[in-house]
């Protein structure tokens, strides 16, 4: 196996006409990785927080997500109950052990909550996003002890809560947040960028929602 590795790397060097001990090439690569310089950033996601939220919302809605905004954390369960009712869904949701979700006043609604990863039979799930990216209406979620990744994919309806203050202009701003939390060069097992509900155009290029993942993506912006 390491023989294959050595062969391939040697063949790459031979083809490129370079030597393995060329320190200047290594330095170029090390610098690029260490600085992680940002490239060209589209202007579209920029602006103050209200402008970013407006762009985020418009972009998410343009890809068939639904978006609601509530003033305070305490209003979230009522908004979720409203979403379930409006779509004729049973008042049950599945979610992880995330403290931000556990702390919500669920008792003010009739919603029945189960916890942990899904076995594939849950109709609706609730997750908490770490950030939203204005330029394309994209949610960023991370895996961890309190956030099962499969809740983002198995249930038919995915409800995602996001704090207004975490709506950032670009993907690059998400990486700043990830580095601040996990350290340079480190990542959680999974980072999911989600832009609208699941879809497929594999049948005669007709866009259909709910291919394997959620048919509905409902975003609740708080604050």
């Amino acid at each position: 196996m390491s023989e294959a590795r050595d062969d391939i790397l040697a063949n790459i060097r031979r083809s490129l006409g370079v030597s393995a001990d060329d320190a200047s090439r290594r330095q170029i690569v090390a610098t690029r990785i260490a600085t992680a310089a940002k490239g060209l950033l589209p202007a579209r996601g920029e602006g103050d927080i209200e402008k970013r939220i407006a762009t985020f919302r418009a972009q998410a809605e343009s890809v068939a997500a639904t978006v609601a905004r509530v003033a305070a954390t305490a209003d979230i369960p009522a908004e979720i109950a409203h979403f379930l009712r409006t779509n004729n869904l049973p008042a049950t949701v599945r979610m992880g052990e995330d403290e931000r979700l556990a702390a919500l006043p669920w008792a003010t609604t009739a919603i029945d909550i189960t916890k942990g990863p899904s076995d594939g039979n849950d109709l609706s799930s609730v997750s908490h996003a770490e950030a939203g990216v204005a330029e394309t209406g994209t949610l960023a979620l991370v895996s961890g002890a309190h956030n099962p990744t499969n809740l983002n994919f198995l249930p038919d309806n995915h409800i995602v809560i996001i704090q207004a203050g975490t709506v950032v202009p670009t993907y690059e701003a998400v990486w700043e947040m990830v580095r601040a939390r996990y350290g340079k060069g480190m990542m959680p097992r999974t980072v999911n960028f989600i832009t609208g509900p699941s879809r497929s155009a594999d049948i005669e290029q007709k866009m259909l929602l709910g291919a394997h993942g959620p048919r509905r993506l409902h975003i609740v912006i708080v604050g």
């Binding site: 890809v63 961890g144 960028f193 832009t195 993942g213």
Partner: peptide
Amino acid sequence: ATGQDMSVYTTFSTGPRRPGDVDG
């Protein structure tokens, strides 16, 4: 590719599940 601004799912995976992870 498809003329979308962004595909629906862009997923970044690093190693196997971590201690304490509940799935993966």
